[in-house]
Design a protein around this nucleic acid. Sequence first.
DNA 1: ATTAGCACTCGTAATATGAGAGTGCTAACC
DNA 2: GGTTAGCACTCTCATATTACGAGTGCTAAT
Lengths: 349, 349
Amino acid sequence: MSNAPTDLTERERDVLRVIIQDYIASAEPVGSRSVARRHGVRLSPATIRNVMADLGELGYLSQPHTSAGRVPTDLGYRFYVDYLMDRRPLTRAEESMIERRFRPVQGEVEDLMREATKLLSGLSRSVGLVLAPRVDQLAVKRIEFVHLSTERVLVILITTSGQVNHKIVILDDAIPQEELNKIARVLNNLVEGMSLSRVRQLLVKKMAEEKAMYDELLRRALELGQKSFAGETEGDVYIGGTANIMHQPEFADVEKMRSIFGAFEEKSKLLKILDQCLDQDGLTIVIGSENVVQEVQRLSLVTAPYWCAEHLLGTLGVIGPTRMEYSKIIPLVDFTAKLVSQHLTEVAS
Amino acid sequence: MSNAPTDLTERERDVLRVIIQDYIASAEPVGSRSVARRHGVRLSPATIRNVMADLGELGYLSQPHTSAGRVPTDLGYRFYVDYLMDRRPLTRAEESMIERRFRPVQGEVEDLMREATKLLSGLSRSVGLVLAPRVDQLAVKRIEFVHLSTERVLVILITTSGQVNHKIVILDDAIPQEELNKIARVLNNLVEGMSLSRVRQLLVKKMAEEKAMYDELLRRALELGQKSFAGETEGDVYIGGTANIMHQPEFADVEKMRSIFGAFEEKSKLLKILDQCLDQDGLTIVIGSENVVQEVQRLSLVTAPYWCAEHLLGTLGVIGPTRMEYSKIIPLVDFTAKLVSQHLTEVAS
DNA sequence: ATTAGCACTCGTAATATGAGAGTGCTAACC
DNA sequence: GGTTAGCACTCTCATATTACGAGTGCTAAT
């Protein structure tokens, strides 16, 4: 189905816009009367009705039942955000208001992420999401090994942004702390400042190069390094303000809500949702059924990527009822992403 | 108000037990007929009614409205869990079932905690809670410093249990990485194996001792050490299975649920709840209005402390509707705490 | 092309009705 | 005296009925 601004006449676009804005504000089906009242060009309800019938035929509007007003379909929302909505950026005053709310954060990256979800959820009255930095893209500052027990070694990875990742590696045979320190020194010299994905490539290459491997220490270092840097770098997801969406009238039904909350609890589901957005560049809007995850197909999503210097790190945004205030939330998400990027870039320098 | 088992006659205790068990199972007010039917000693509904009237007068039962059955009050539940409930421990079969579900975890302590909340919530059909290890009690394995920027230093603290804590410390004047390493060595020699709270005491003492402080390095080490180990060691809270309580008929009202979920999102509220339990030793049951936190006074709590060797680390348990299956959940929580303690103790050795 | 008029549809809110569950009380019973 | 049958009474809940109003779609007039 084609979906271009020119598919609709000026009048149809006007009517669609008014209906969606009205519905977003009221959560109730919009009738021809109220459109006629709000519509700039004075037209009678009857005329509006004709237009509405057309828009319904085209799939932009639907009726909950025969004699009720119209409700936007997902397609209608899509058209709205693509062509109808006015996307004015935030005013300076609004920006500084948000900045002030964000200020208290400094230090830990985790706190920054958590604070971002709070900010997003608080100002949008929806649910805030942050897909934590993909570790792959981060530059390694340092790696440390701590001997825990015979075969278990704690690997600590510090990035230039001050993030700390750790995991436990199981060894084939014991390595004393003494040697672990040496190995750490070797590896640190090798990888400092490189991104994690580069490090992985390098280690593979090095190992192949030194087949003969006269240097026993180097061999063990490369081996342990590979184990340490391997493994899925599954992104972490921060979520905040879930209680907010309970306000929405569309979730008065407890059963619907339960399935949504179930999905929110499953990190993997959230990851799937946010991954969908990471591929796009720039601000992304996913509306209702466009979403890949079943349980949240009554919800919509506004996300924007954030960066550290030139590296794309992750994405953050808001998930809430499809009937959300896009024209308020989009600038909010956009600005928050900028703010987070700025903080992360400052910290890394 | 006195509250001892002897306050009630044998018959009253029987009736109260039957009513509570019935109500827990059905979530509906219990009438005299159904008590009479279920009651061992064959008594007529009329007799039961007299007993019920007495129990109502004593504050153990209440009526939703004049001509409805009886519902237990918080006091009634309290009496039930204290004196009426049969507390049979788990069978071997049940224990091994739980163990099997728990098995996959090894390695990171965070994963263990998260897994515990899943286990608890899954088997109780309520919400699982774990108050993360109080760092104070943990033994220090190692401390590391990483220079981030001129005045910011990343402090990494590793405990013998393999937990990694980190925070950022702001310096008065810059210390190069070189010297940070030396300081780390000094501190590590000083504090390895001690509990964090002991370390704090030691540092204060040492600093007072060496007023003259000829050793410049030691001085700086103590100073940085103090900064690093200072600060509230606010416990972290893990929570899982929040979606579960939506099943419960008592939360059909969305507004009630919203306030509960709001409380769940606030870590500080949860901390307050769990702190209440940490003071007790052994398994703790907090019923409805006994709870200190307003928002969850319609919920009850079953918690048990967990340990690493002989150190009390934290507490874990289940929060759910007051009408929960205590006789199933209590053994579950008890056993889970044992299981977690066992894992943590193994890891630390 | 637009609009007024009108019959029609459908959901919602208000009201009435009856059934059922349970109580409390009284009087009879063992 | 404790126990029980009987009975009138209360209150909720489910169901049916009704009335209302918002909104539509169509037709015919402008």
